[in-house]
């Protein structure tokens, strides 16, 4: 109730919430999803494989 009333009575806050929601959508639904995969998590299945991959990178880089 406290929050509902607060949101209902907002004036400038409405624009701000619109900005926050649009921003979060762009960040998580577009940028994170399509451009920023976690490379080690997506490319390897286990921590041992990830450690091996990083070791190889750091030896031969």
């Amino acid at each position: 109730m406290f929050y509902v009333e607060g949101f209902r009575n907002m004036t400038i806050g409405r624009s701000l919430w619109a900005i926050i929601l649009i921003k979060l959508f762009i960040m998580f639904a577009v940028i994170k999803l399509f451009f920023f995969p976690n490379k080690l998590s997506s490319d390897y299945d286990s921590d041992e494989q990830r450690a091996d991959a990083v070791r190889t990178e750091l030896i031969y880089k």
């Binding site: 940028i31 490379k39 990830r50 990083v54």
Partner: peptide, 23 residues
């Protein structure tokens, strides 16, 4: 409101561009 979560993008970059560092 304008600044909130702008720092999260740095964490995206750690996972994608700087994975050797992150690990």
């Amino acid at each position: 409101a304008c600044g909130v979560a702008t720092g999260i993008i740095l964490e995206f970059e750690f996972g994608t561009n700087w994975s050797n560092y992150s690990w």
